[in-house]
Design a protein around this nucleic acid. Sequence first.
DNA 1: AGGGGCTTCAGTTCG
DNA 2: TGCGAACTGAAGCCCCTC
Length: 793
Amino acid sequence: MKITFWLLDINYDVVGDTPEIRMWGITDDERRIVVLDRSFRPYFYVLPREGVDLQKLMRRIRSMSSAKHRIIDVSIVERKYFGKPVTLLKVTCQIPASVPKLREELANLPEVKEVLEADIRFYMRYMIDNNIVPCGWHEVEVEELPNTKGWQVDAVYLAKEVPKYIPHLTKIPKLRVLAFDIECYNPRGTPKPERDPVIIIAVATNDGEEKIFLAEDHNDRRMIQEFVKYVKKKDPDVIVGYNSNGFDWPYLLERCSKLKVKLNVSRTDSAPAQSVYGHFSIIGRANVDLYNYAEELAEVKVKTLENVAEYLGVMKKEERILIEGVEIYKYWDDPKLREKLIEYAKYDVRSILGISDKVLPFLIQLSSIVGLPLDQVVAASVGYRVEWHLMRQAFEYNEVIPNRVERPHETYRGAIVLKPKPGIHENIAVLDFSSMYPNIMISKNISPDTYVPPYEKVDPNDVYVAPEVGHRFRKHPPGFYRKVLERLLKARKEIRDKMKELDPDSIEYKILNERQKALKVIANATYGYCGWVAARWYKREVAEATTAWGRKIIRETIDLAKKLGLNVIYGDTDSIFVKYDKDKVNELIKIIKDKMGLEIKPDKIYVRAFFTEAKKRYCGLLPDGHIDVVGLEAVRGDWSELAKEVQEKIIEIILKEGSVDKAISYVHETIEKLKRGEIPLSKLIIWKTVTKRLEEYEVKAPHVTAARKLLAAGYMLTVGDKVGYIITNKGGSSLADRAEPYIFVKSPKDVDVDYYIHKQIIPAAMRILSYFGVREDQLISGKRQVSLLEFFR
DNA sequence: AGGGGCTTCAGTTCG
DNA sequence: TGCGAACTGAAGCCCCTC
């Protein structure tokens, strides 16, 4: 019998002494199934030292086989290692657990130079070798087996062959998504699972159902059991939460272990288990923590659930019920308030489900491109995503995967940033090189395997030589990075071409759009990866040569633009800002295409733009009235909302109306409001991340003292958390001593008004207004000033 | 003691 | 647990003046 299924999750177990790969999926007729493959065996490679007698080494390795760690086969294979042919011994074992054991023993043999690919998990090995793609469709000949273990699937199949990936099938099956969120009893600050029960579990599913589970007073045993039962009944494919890997799952697991209750929510009736990248794996389902996704959203500075939901347009913040986290227990204990707490929990779980609806389509595409299962790809950082993508490609090119090596950090020069021409400019075109670094790596064949070390003699005609740094790369054959990046960019182009023929409202268009975005993300992250010292394919010279060529290209582009008579206002890395002269810009684009073989295109045109004297800080008005703010305080997360709002407003007044007077009086009015205590405390909060353990700080910083105060009050705080504080007028003479966690500040009377005037509002305002000759005292007094027009005259 | 000038530490953003 | 370039505020220090 042949079946077609979409791969959702994969794991393995050893049955008897046979490893069994389990592929959990959804068939084209929407049945939940598992496909077992018992034919695959774990293996790794041994790279012998030069001159070693291979037959002798093979005999020696074979002799290491034992009843517990059986070696099935040792064979000679030819692979490439950084592009060079190598002869390796492939050691195949009976069970996956033997691999790490034998790796240790073999690495110590004098005949062995290196043990390779021994750190790849068994199910990943299976997917790599057989081109099995997570979130992709596969066709396989199977026979049905009885479901003897009572797994939660419609059928258990034994694969009669290796499943075959169907690349062109882009549709996504209808996934059953379940969102959940827990609330805990917290009379003593941060709840502790050994002490405090879970009081509410809110659940929402994408079939429109919502369900609230409540503890019986302070007893959560039955509620958790009911929750587990409900999950099993709904049988979701994807379980989503917000910080569920960091909080909900570990909390529930600890509660369960204390209560002697089973949290068997998986399709094999097992509990969530801690897995790679700090994520919890739920067999047969994808456990997705949307907080991981939020971490990538640079636009959202404080990553609370409501902020992310608001940003993605899922929920409106105003409609949210406000309950201070530390007060949750009061709402639970007071029968009159409990209903409010339940509404609060419902709001959160709706937000989670709403976010999943927006972002799962992208994450699914990322999973299939990177080759990591959906739940893992979400949890993995950028470096690991790129690396898994490379590892899967390496197999296809017969390249052996290098080991991770610990290396000291090395620095190298990066990109060029031009000094901007300060002031107001009209009609500015921003010209961008598309995918500059990937294209440089492709065109100069930059790769660890094409790199020619300084001591090696080659015909100068056979290599590309990087400017400034002199690193050389062979022109032929194509390097690993070139092949991988070419494939990514080509796939993206094909998709974008196909999209042009589709209705933008169609499902296929939307799927393809998410896919091309995911392809772009991986291609653009590959340069950063190659300069990451922990990368398997790290090579400083590769990263260094790429930026060196980037600098050359941008310098030549600037020279060319100037020669054509274009006024270059600014530039950063792969872009130049020029006064928009249509003919000259078109000529520039054409010359760059013809002479350099590169594509540069007008990304946007600013009707009016303002540059400060600082690099990476400017703002511009677009034809549709929208204003871009780049780098300035208004877009930074470490300034108070008050200062950001003031600056934003000034920018708008200056760019749209050109009235410095109006800007001054606006600032003046705001200062007066602040003095009268009319600015809400929420606009005075300053957020900063705690980046290390508190005792490691060498200087007394405001957010660190605020963090200490939180800790003293019983709040939990970990490295990476953002602390929100307000500068008050008591607590000491130093600023840091006067920083108070915002939740402790109750009255505008306690605010250090002078600080907010002189260290928040005025600096943010002066960043823009000082260019127009405005002085600080004018902002405080509100005195008028000449108009922008007069100023220029 | 207090202020100016400088360096260091720390955090954040741009591309 | 992707990169370097760049900016900025606050602390911390030295030095000088009073």
